[in-house]
Design a protein around this nucleic acid. Structure first.
Lengths: 101, 101
DNA sequence: AATATATATCAACAATATTTGATAAGTCAA
DNA sequence: TTGACTTATCAAATATTGTTGATATATATT
């Protein structure tokens, strides 16, 4: 996976209102799926889908406890995200003007 | 537009490798479309499409000079993005355990 | 073992996004 | 004003995502 593919994966995971609402809930600590269903008024398979997208991008982690799955934000991913955004802010050395057209 | 819809729009604009490569080029300063075509080896209408997505999300700005359009990163959007990421890092006050299930 | 509960996965469908080639619009130079 | 050049827009085709309801899996309880 190239650098920009990985970055795109990370941003894509955040590019959906439902997933952002999930993350907002998780900011208050880890949370099981049924509680998320309650809070977001979202169907089970819909949530499961979005949780998987977030998890595959590394944005959240899960942990089983009995029949419940608890999801939590993955701090590493947030750091990665912060670094990405910082890199946007950092100017590159200017290219020589290429005379393209 | 709700808060999470706006955030999703911003992240969506960044959720594509081509668009990230465009931004990477723009980090070196403003750039016209034909130069981007050169550098990214991308077709004109394809670039135009991605530039529009970035522009509509407010991530970049354009400026006409003669027949050229120059695109540049919009610093405001980067600040907005940084704030968003910071807000993820900031914990919310813990919810009372809701006893959902 | 049988049943209930919590969640994941699947398949079908719907909605969005992306790519491509063609054409239009704006600007410049002759 | 004609022609060349740069970029935007459009329409069609394709690809990717998201939703929904049904079913499967894992765990707990009886």
């Amino acid at each position: 996976m190239t650098h920009s593919e990985r970055a795109a994966e990370l941003f894509h995971a955040l590019a959906d209102p439902t997933r952002l609402e999930i993350l907002d809930e998780l900011r208050a600590g880890e949370c099981c799926v049924c509680e998320l269903m309650d809070r977001l008024q979202a169907g089970q398979s819909r949530l499961s889908f979005h949780l998987r997208v977030l998890k595959e991008a590394g944005v959240i982690q899960d942990r089983r406890e009995g029949r419940w799955m608890y999801y939590a934000v993955n701090a590493e991913a947030l750091a990665e995200l912060g670094d990405l955004v910082d890199s946007f802010k950092q100017a590159k050395r200017a290219r020589r003007v290429a005379g393209c057209c």
